[in-house]
């Protein structure tokens, strides 16, 4: 069953979203190019930018997708896809942060042990000089 809202993506909305997603992709590519964003982390962002672009270029795709999963209001399906994408990205960040926290802890511990070893050596050197 089609809702009257199915054709609510006007040409203007489409144009706007195409420009928006191209801009998003350009920002991402630029960040990667300047090495502000590691290639590994950027794959998810690129995928998401690409997905938004595809949906704005071929909005029939969005309609058939929203019909398929049973959402009446097509833009809501777009939101759903975006929210899932954002959730995946933030999960990815939580994993990355946990890994970094663990590494920082290891470094701090190693640093404390090395400092004490160095201190002992220094003291020994000083006393043997006297």
């Amino acid at each position: 069953m089609y809702s009257i809202l199915d054709n609510s993506l006007t040409l203007r909305t489409q144009l706007f979203s195409i420009v928006g997603s191209i801009l998003l992709l350009l920002i991402i590519i630029n960040l990667i190019r300047r090495e502000y964003l590691k290639e590994g982390y950027s794959l998810l962002w690129l995928l998401m930018g690409g997905l938004v672009l595809i949906f704005s270029l071929f909005n029939e795709l969005l309609f058939s997708f929203s019909n398929f999963i049973g959402i009446d209001y097509a833009p809501a399906a777009l939101f759903l896809v975006l929210i899932i994408g954002l959730m995946l990205i933030s999960m990815h960040f939580s994993v990355a942060i946990s890994k970094h926290e663990k590494r920082i802890k290891e470094l701090a511990q190693e640093n404390a042990l090395l400092k004490s070893m160095l201190n002992k050596k220094e003291r020994k050197r000083k006393t043997s000089k006297k």
């Binding site: 802890k105 701090a108 511990q109 640093n111 404390a112 042990l113 400092k115 004490s116």
Partner: peptide, 21 residues
Amino acid sequence: GILNLSFNLGIGGAVQTGLKY
């Protein structure tokens, strides 16, 4: 003897440092 951690790791990180020692 003292081991100085550069920043606060919390009790777990501190005890583990001692165990490493």
